[in-house]
Amino acid sequence: MNDDLTLLASAYLDGDVTADERARVETDPELTAEVERLRSVRVLLADVEPSSIAVRESLLSNALEAWDRLPIGERTGAARDATPVKRGIGPATAAAAATITAPISLADRRRATVNRRLLGAAAAIVVVLAGGVVLQSAFSGNDDSSSSLSAPDATTSAEALTESPQDARTATAAGGEVAPADAANDSGGLDTGINNPAPPTETDLEQLNTPEELGIFASDAVGAPKAPDVPAATSGSIDDQLTQSQASILAVEWPLCLGADFVVGPARYGTVEVVVGVDESRALALAYVADSCLEVARARLP
C-alpha cells in the first residue's frame, strides 16, 4: 500500500473525501481493507483508560489552587482585555470564553456547597408539601365522586362516572345540588393536574429536518451566552448549579456520544428519533441515535 492510497484511506476514515474518492475507496477491496486497518488503530487509540477519581480530583484541586493564587487583577481578565482581539468572533466562542474565564474561588466554592445543601433541604420540603397537596386533592376528589353518585338523578350519576371530575361536578350542580364553594377550589388554587384532563401521554419530539434547525434547537436549549466579564461570585450561582444538575440528569438518561459534553434532549431528525448533544469545545450540535451512538447529523451552533 503506497502513501497516496494510505492517505486516501485515512481521509476516507475522517470523512474528508470527495464523492469520487469515496466511490473509489468503496469499490476497491484493497482500499477498504486499509480503511479497516486504520479504523482499528483509531478504536485502540480512543479507548483511553480514565484516571482514578483520586488522581483527577487531586489534579483539578491543584489547578484551582493555582487559580486562587492568581492576583485578583489578573483573574478579572485585565490581561485578556489588553490583548487586541480579532474581529468576527462567533457568539458561541464568546460564550465559551465568558464561561471559562471565571472559575469559582475557594471561598465561593465553599459558599456554594452550603447553598447547595440549603437548596436540597428546601427542595425536599417542597416535594413533601406538594405530595400532601396531591393526596389531599385525591381524597377530596373521591368525596366529589361519592357526592355525585348520591345524586338523585341516575342518568347524571352515570354520566358522572364516565366523565371527568370537573364535568361530574357540573353534572351534580345541574342535578339540583349546589356545589360547595370550596369544592370548586379544592386544590387550593394549585394546579395539581388531578382535576384537569390528563396531558397527552405521547412525548411531542421536536421535528428537525436540516442541520440549521438542529443548530438552532441546540442553541436555544443551551441558552443565551453570558456576559464576557461576569464576576466570579455570580458565575457560580445556584442557577448555574441547577443547570449543571439538569445536564447531569440528561446525561444519565441519554448517553454522551461523539464527544458531546452534555445532552440537550431528544428530538426527531427527519424520521429518526435522536438525542441532541452539544460539544461545547467545538461549538457543535450533534444528533445521534441513543442506542448505537450513530451520528445522524451535526451542525455548528449559531
Binding site: A63, L64, A66, W67, L70, E74, R75, T76, G77, A78, A79, R80, T83, V85, K86, I89, T93, A94, A96, A97, T99, I100, T101, P103, D279, E280, S281, R282, A283
Partner: peptide, 14 residues
C-alpha cells in the same frame, strides 16, 4: 488556569 485571563476566544476553548 493561569492563562485563562489571557484566553481571548479566537479559537474554541477546547
Amino acid at each position: 488556569v493561569r492563562n485563562l485571563p489571557r484566553f481571548d476566544g479566537r479559537s474554541s476553548f477546547g
